[in-house]
Write a protein that binds this DNA or RNA. Structure first.
Lengths: 334, 334
DNA sequence: CTGAAAGCGCTTACAG
DNA sequence: CTGAAAGCGCTTACAG
């Protein structure tokens, strides 16, 4: 593999002149040399050595994408889609994306420092470690969907609380009175709590009730369904805080002979593409993942450019997509 | 950030002794020094600089994962799942995963050389460029799902042809006589051709026919459905070469009032998790993505260890998962 | 068991 | 517009 030195020798100039051409600092080199050197670069198929660059210039052009968990984290369509858009955007900025799945907090710093990452994006719940991570790493760090009592950190999230509000409002408008909330088994994070709180607050504001025993945190969805169907006071409206789980729930209910939305009405969260292909089509709270990924990177690069920028917590909006999984209790003569 | 030099100074030894301890070459250092140095490493939170290592040792500990396409490539659950398992496996080997989405062939070499990647994994169709990529990069390169006339390249694939055979056999066993084949719009690669060929050969071996006009390559699934329903001789059995497209097809058919499997029987390909949640549940050809990812990395690291190893083309098996989307024409009194 | 020297391929900072 | 020097943080190869 050709190096600056090889090219310099062939062109009869110093390494520095070649370096200038490679870095497109054309105003500092004579036109004659520019052309000569460019021809040689092309002929030799020269590619700059990023390690050497990183070592000498302290700029690695690496953005680390740190995802919490290890097994199958990309089987979650949310994570996969988010990662896809993020990598895409990193490349648009002419940076390189390094992906790390992480379980232990200490690995974060190890990876970031080892590769001299210029910035990092976090997917998943790091709430408890944000302070430590920030103390250990002086590069721009952008978290997503985090809720932490720390005030100073950059976060891109969505209005989870409002998602809960929208779900409750929709159920209430459709005449429902008996509610349940199901936590997706993948996580027990703050973000789910927010969705729950928005849901609960809205129900109570309407003088209705979300009974504590109707808030389910399923280890096993089959069991959850059994519980769900055994309530003395039957629920009609179920808010499941992630589409994945909502779809699994619908499937089990249908298999046991229940009809949706006749017996149970369901609202999911995320608006994954699958929502349109299950039957009935799933009414859900939609978030714009692509937009979220773009904001994430845009904010990261702003901070890369201007490190003194204040931290910001961007909260993206959320909307209810009405499909077919919620029954209208008003217009029905049972 | 601490360097070897900092530690050496504090320990009162040379940089080399510290380097030996960092690299766990304990037999070359006195016990006393090992302990002293380890304590300092811990105290200072020393993390080796990977760029420096890469530059001086020519071993970057980077595996590049190169995915064809750019927009939303991870919205394909197959790609996402595959990538997830691959990254996971790369980390188990204590290597780092760099992810590149690529459209132009020339970017491949640029990325690999720039970062001194020790090996690379390719997802997607690179058939036409395999030879060139191999000529330009002397590191182990593992392709997946590739069909190329080049004989010498490492490939991990599945038995696509047999997938087609299994689908055809299943339809035939269930008494179907009129078939269609739908290409997933995401790709027009060899691998789809293989699935088609297995399907067609098996049908013809049974003295039945797959009419050329029944082989559809949909730009727009709605149009395809219109075509499908307008055949003078109605088809009953449709093999769609990817679950994603199969599910989209089912949805459109249902929306137009057709029943599945009564009016149309459908078999997909991949066995994505969603297959169990659509209704009717999708009968499909299953491939073990996790296993495929593991083989991919295992073969890569074997070649990293022993570069002289001959290339190999590993073909994993495939099986039909029977669910509810194929009608049994034998036991039915229409 | 230990260390001094040279070098990996580049950039920064300076002198001319 | 050009280049010589020094250095980034590590490892290799050698001498003792």
């Amino acid at each position: 593999m050709a190096t600056l030195k090889d090219i310099a020798k062939e062109a009869g100039v110093s390494v520095m002149t070649v370096s200038r051409v490679v870095n497109k600092r054309y105003s500092e080199v004579s036109e004659e040399n520019i052309e000569k050197i460019q021809a040689i670069i092309k002929k030799l198929g020269y590619v700059p050595n990023s390690s050497a660059r990183s070592l000498s210039s302290k700029s690695s052009k690496i953005i680390s994408i740190i995802i919490q968990g290890s097994n199958n984290v990309l089987e979650s369509p949310y994570n996969a889609t988010m990662l896809g858009h993020i990598v895409q955007r990193v490349q648009e900025y002419n940076y390189n994306a390094m992906v790390h799945f992480i379980n232990e907090y200490s690995d974060v710093t190890k990876h970031l420092q080892s590769w001299n990452a210029e910035g990092a994006v976090f997917l998943g719940t790091f709430d408890k470690n944000i302070q430590q991570i920030q103390a250990d790493n002086k590069i721009p760090l952008v978290f997503t969907d985090s809720y932490s009592s720390i005030r100073q950190f950059i976060n891109i999230g969505i209005d989870d609380y409002r998602g809960g509000v929208l779900a409750a409002e929709h159920f209430i408008n459709k005449g429902h009175q008996d509610f349940a909330f199901i936590t997706p088994h993948t996580s027990v994070s703050q973000l789910i709590q927010q969705r729950l709180r928005g849901f609960k607050d809205t129900i109570e504001a309407a003088n209705l009730n979300l009974l504590p025993e109707h808030i389910l945190d399923p280890l096993d969805m089959e069991e959850t369904v059994t519980t769900l169907c055994s309530f003395k006071k039957q629920v009609s409206a179920i808010f499941v805080a992630a589409d994945n789980s909502a779809i699994e729930l619908m499937d089990i209910l249908k298999r046991r002979g229940y009809r949706i939305p006749e017996d149970f009405s369901i609202i999911g969260f995320d608006n994954l593409p699958i929502c349109q292909y299950v039957s009935p089509r799933l009414t859900t709270i939609s978030q714009n993942i692509r937009q979220k990924a773009q904001y994430t990177l845009d904010v990261l690069f702003e901070h890369l450019k201007t490190p003194s920028l204040p931290t910001q917590n961007i909260v993206l909006n959320v909307e209810l997509i009405e499909r077919e999984s919620v029954r209208d209790m008003n217009n029905t003569t049972l």
